[in-house]
Amino acid sequence: MKRIYCLLFGLVLSLPVLGQDLYFPKRNEVWKKAETRQFNFKTDKLQEAVDFAMQNEYSGSRDLRRAILKGFEREPFHEILGPTKKRGGPAGIILKNGYILASWGDTQRVDMTFSVTKSFLSTMAGLAWDQGLIKNTDDKVGSYIWDGTFNGNHNSKISWEHLLQQNSDWSGELWGLKDWADRPAKEGGLDDWKFRKLNEPGTVMEYNDVRVNVLAYSLTHLWRKPMPMVLKQELMDKIGASTTWRWFGYDHAWTEVDGVQMKSVTGGGHSGAGLFISAEDMARFGMVFLNNGKWAKEQLISEAWITKATKPSVPNINYGYMWWLNQKGARYWEGVPEHLFYAAGFGGNFIVVDQENGLLIVTRWLEPQKVGEFVKLVYDSF
């Protein structure tokens, strides 16, 4: 019975999409709201979801410097190394076919977005793959980056895919941060962790920002440009994003390419830095993935890349190329479609993409363990 309901629900939600173009706002255009009866949903039920998001604000301090230090206090040597910013209150947008069904909070406020940045970083790899800078994601990164970052019996085995799926177990130090000190295992002492046996690349996923930043460093040298410049030129300008977003690295994370000093950015913010962006610009980014790589009729990211990026990895069925997947695993959200995928960041920052139903959800500063319940409330309104 549950499966029949889900199939019928998917059909009902999908019906308005048929024969109808998606709406893509121009730069600085006031985002259009859905007209009355344009889509079939229950307004009161959707308001319940919005109220839930407003009432379940992330419990950490609005002073994100304090929230970061508290959230990662068990990490040895942890400190703030890049910019931080005090955050606003809960905010978000729910879009159907690009039209606003509901919004709350200040959707134009620029805030830190933490590990949502990883999905942007993954996209920089996708653009490189589309343009032939990366021939194959199974290629060893050491054949592209030969400065010693991928030397040694273990690191030399690491491919682009391993970095993108966070299962490389890259071992070393970058910008003064040691890989083993980032989210160390709870069992055993630090000395045991430092001298642990390394996992074969591709076999075990470990969420680790040092290794994500190794990917950012590698892509900086691959593109021969800072990642914010690539993001701006290849994507954000083309989708009409505002001029307010910024992508930071650690204060001392400078590298030289072609005689030019450039900052190597981070893929998260748990030592500061990362992407600072508004909910509306997050929604524009999400719309590209909702439309299988297109902004309006312009193909910006290939469909082939999005398919690769949202394919479950072998060690973790809920993780692709720095996108989370709603498969039946440890991160499964009950009562919502399994085909959706999402970007997720510390403090309750999410971009949820449902291509099949034309539904896009951006929510900020929602208590993270409440997000599955919130998303289900959104789907219950249809």
Rank of each mutant, 00 (worst) to 15 (best):
S264K: 03
Q261M: 13
G347N: 08
W324E: 08
V260S: 12
T307C: 01
M287N: 09
Y321H: 12
G268Q: 11
P315E: 08
N291R: 11
F289A: 08
G274T: 08
H339I: 04
Y332R: 14
K308T: 07
D237A: 06
P315I: 08
K328D: 06
G345L: 11
L325Y: 13
L300I: 05
N326D: 07
G259I: 10
Y321M: 07
A283W: 04
E334Y: 14
G329C: 05
S242I: 02
S278N: 04
T255S: 15
S271K: 13
L235T: 00
T255I: 12
V265S: 09
Y321E: 00
G259D: 10
M287R: 06
L275K: 00
K263Q: 15
M262R: 13
T310D: 04
A309Q: 07
I277L: 12
W324F: 15
G269Y: 14
T310G: 03
N291P: 09
G293N: 08
M287G: 03
M287I: 11
F346V: 07
H339Y: 01
F289V: 01
W295R: 05
Y250G: 00
I306C: 02
S242D: 12
P315Q: 09
F289L: 13
A309S: 14
V336C: 10
F289E: 12
L300C: 03
A296I: 04
